[in-house]
Amino acid sequence: MISVTSKCSHAEEQQGSARTLCLCQQNVSGAQCALLYTTHSGQRRIRIHNMGLNCSAQLADVYRACETDALINFFAKSAFEAILSQPLKTVRDILVSQTAHMLACYKKNCASPATLSQLILPETMKVLPVYMNCLLKSCVLGGRPEIPTDERAFQRQLLMAMGVADTQLFFYPLLLPLHSLDLQSDAVPAAIRCSEERLSEGGAFLLANGLSMFLWLGAGVCPELIQGLFNVPSFAHISAQATSLPDLDNPFSKKLKHILEQIQSQRPHTMKLIIVKQREQPEMLFRQFLVEDKDIYGGASYVDFLVCIHKEIGQLLS
């Protein structure tokens, strides 16, 4: 094993009467960080943090242990940092190239023999292409001129501080069918894929991305559901300006309220509720979060992006 040791000294930082000096020591099997500081009472102390990392001589083990959620968090932060010093197209091309190289390396060195026409994905990285496509279609990397600079800067700063779970939801929202709720159970309904083909005119769906929650209502949704949620007789009477649901004493309303509270409790930000009625103006905003579809600004659908990555892998291995 080759041991690599390095030390990096950070500038001393004055905070009140406390002065800190951080020394980091790294090697191939772990990391150690030592913090030397003086307390307000004048005591000199040192705090040491150790982290052990698993190592392997087998490339297949690396793919087998890969955590795609953490990987996309890393790529997103790296890309959002890179756009400050590199052209947007360069950053986008690098993301596509790195995705293709990772999957080509797996196919060449780890996968069972297969024809060049097959797209082979590691079991732990099957959702990497869909996440990467969502990252490329984000307002920060999408390059859409109609998005204000302030909005781009806000989302960039927001994501740079996000943890893995929040990044996952930000790029691939949670989409729940509400019209088939089991009122006898406390369980949240199973999520479905974020695609327009999963919607139905007679259904109601909740979409949450960590910043907002959208309650989408089909034009043919049953009157009983409308009455149970909004206490109005028909679809036409629903107000799309509302930002909350009324407190009603019926099983469906209580169940949905419970789901909203449960989702909100897992997020660090309060999510605004937006009511979306099918074929009305706010639906355009809602459809931007159906991330598996081709968007109106030219962003590739998930299927189109898979085709693109497949071609890139073929070129690398040919």
Rank of each mutant, 00 (worst) to 15 (best):
S239F: 00
N133M: 06
T68M: 05
E197R: 15
G203V: 03
K107W: 00
S234T: 00
I226V: 09
L88S: 00
A31L: 08
A161C: 14
P145H: 10
N73Q: 14
V91L: 13
K126Y: 06
P251V: 11
L245S: 08
H269K: 15
L256P: 00
L36D: 02
T115Q: 14
G42M: 13
K137M: 05
K107M: 03
R47Q: 12
A153D: 15
T149K: 15
Q155G: 08
V164I: 14
T20D: 07
I275Q: 01
E292T: 09
Q157R: 15
F205H: 03
C308Q: 13
E261V: 06
Y297L: 02
M132H: 02
E197Q: 15
Q241T: 12
D249V: 10
L71A: 05
F214V: 04
L88M: 08
P113T: 03
H10D: 01
L260W: 01
Y172E: 03
C8R: 06
L260E: 02
A82I: 07
T90A: 13
S3D: 11
S239E: 02
K108F: 05
L21T: 03
Q184C: 09
L135E: 01
C194Q: 09
A82Q: 12
R19L: 11
P145D: 15
D61V: 05
L59R: 10
G218F: 01
